[in-house]
Nucleic acid binder design. Structure first.
Lengths: 336, 336
DNA sequence: CTGTTAGCGCTTTCAT
DNA sequence: ATGAAAGCGCTAACAG
């Protein structure tokens, strides 16, 4: 015989008061006699009463939950964003409704709709999202901030990594180290991060080295792609003395290819990455990379969302940007 | 002027039908004239109607959400469990309400209570949880399965890693490689995983080597602790020819200490870890370790939960166990 | 096939 | 200080 959890009505009856009083007592409102308050508390304990938050949300039109929809991302990134969001959410007592979405944009729409009535706001990260998409698919009046993509339209908040600036910084570092012929390994075609990094790279090599037609090898952010690119460079070196991979995993793969061929890093060819995943400091040699403060992106996105929720008629929230930070390790430092 | 999202009533009015018909049409029930169905759909589109899932949950007494409360864990583990859970949940269209909890057991209680009325079931992972705790703090009738701890009491489901078996397997491997004096670096005092691994280690060295008083150095699962333990071994070697770290990060730290002192791994001293974090394959030499199928633990936990939800009066769900798998890399293979 | 009615569990005016 | 009643948005009998 499975007895379901007691409702506030059971508590009220047990304490011999109205549900109204029970509610007031349970929520610590002022207008309750200490006596009845105690009776209610006692009854609640006796019945092991646990409030039904779903019902409460309905009446209060507030869920104390924020929705998080993320693409199906690989370990590190995923957990870091969540950590950042969670840290901030936890501090103010909010829960996270997660919708890790695999698949395409239509699934994003689904995920967003599934949030209606279950969250007070939305943190959204999905490739290839723009202002039009948002106005088209966001339930009216659901505060939302977009992560990872810069949303230009008004009325939408976003926070993104400055990939372009990061790439420029890396090229500057490489140039400062004395490298003169820098190749890049790009990420997946059409990927926003990859595009930004490539653009920054191109701009920087043009500015700093006068190189208007740098070597850019195709990649897809995987270690294997990095390895292949490394092999390609070995096959047709073209004077390349440094390679800037669009992310760390490709850099790692590239280094493996180089080292398999007996080319020393950084003395033969320098290698740099982007992201600063944990592995970066453990490979041989440790990898120079652009550290992205992923967790902070989550935290700041959350805080922006809180502000949005607090004042729904807020001033136009300009897109925020997060600067990656250069981390120099031995993969680019010319020794001797 | 911020117009809130339309409700089903608005749709009904717009389509000039009752809310009942609107509801039926929207949910694709059979008993609706195609004509009215179309009218309703049209109205819904026109008003950009998005159903309020919170309200729906209340009436249906089903949330299509499962709660996940996890301790505040470090990257890899966290994201892997979630990935495993999410993969399975996504397949059947369920959402995840996350409660990553920092802090102590009382916070666990909080987190659990906060799930009432918002989820159909609970996946719970929290250090030091037992059957008593569960019966005491679980809202009545909330199906729950515990991850990472073996719950012996009846009426509760659990799924845990076989730490003891894993440790035994590792010792067996080490012995097979020819190592005879194996030290262990333990995890944090009182940690369940650590305790299991140490117990397995002790049992195995006793069985296999007749060593009833092996060296066990204190650690806390951190890389630094591993380094310190490595240094301690160097300071007082006692004939140790292999060290089994309670997790990979300590193994990595230990190897760093050894290599800093010029001791070769594995020829001077072999090192093994536990977990198979991504870093394990990238350190030099690559680390032999016990691979734990974390994502699978999540998936299986979820499936167990589904079964629990489907048949609330299920047979006694015996605690499940997940076997780690030996992954041999170069940190333990005697060369030549 | 369709509309009316009654809740789901909770909070909150509005009287008393 | 307390209770009665309305209602959050939706679905599910129950009648027509």
């Amino acid at each position: 015989m499975k007895r379901a959890t007691a409702t506030i009505r059971d508590v009220a009856r047990e304490a011999d008061v109205s549900v109204a009083s029970a509610s007031r007592a349970l929520n610590g409102h002022a207008n309750v006699t200490p006596a009845t308050r105690d009776r209610v508390i006692a009854a609640a304990n006796k019945l092991a009463y646990v409030p039904h938050l779903g019902a409460r949300s309905l009446t209060m039109a507030r869920t104390n939950t924020i929705g998080v929809v993320l693409p199906d991302l690989f370990g590190e990134f995923f957990s870091e964003v969540i950590r950042g969001i969670d840290r901030a959410a936890h501090a103010v007592g909010l829960q996270l409704l997660l919708s890790n979405m695999h698949g395409d944009a239509s699934e994003t729409t689904q995920a967003i709709r599934a949030m209606r009535g279950r969250v007070d706001g939305l943190l959204l990260m999905s490739p290839g999202i723009d202002a039009d998409f948002l106005t088209a698919h966001l339930p009216a009046g659901l505060p939302t901030v977009v992560l990872g993509s810069r949303i230009e339209g008004e009325g939408h908040s976003s926070i993104a990594i400055d990939n372009e600036g990061g790439a420029r910084a890396m090229v500057a570092h490489l140039v400062a180290c004395g490298y003169r012929r820098i190749a890049m390994i790009s990420g997946p075609e059409g990927n926003g991060d990859s595009d930004g990094r490539c653009a920054g790279f191109r701009a920087a090599v043009a500015d700093l080295l006068g190189d208007h037609d740098p070597v850019v090898l195709p990649g897809d952010f995987s270690e294997d792609a990095g390895y292949a690119a490394g092999a390609a460079i070995l096959a047709d070196r073209r004077g390349i003395d440094a390679v800037f991979a669009g992310n760390d995993m490709m850099a790692v793969g590239c280094m493996a290819a180089l080292s398999a061929a007996g080319i020393a890093v950084p003395n033969g060819i320098a290698v740099a990455g982007f992201d600063d995943v944990p592995i970066a400091r453990y490979v041989q040699p440790p990898l120079t990379t652009m550290q992205v403060h992923i967790a902070e992106m989550g935290t700041r996105a959350f805080e922006t969302l809180m502000a949005l929720i607090a004042s729904p008629d807020a001033p136009p929230p300009s897109p925020q940007t997060l600067e990656p930070e250069l981390v120099v390790r031995r993969s680019t430092r010319l020794s001797g």
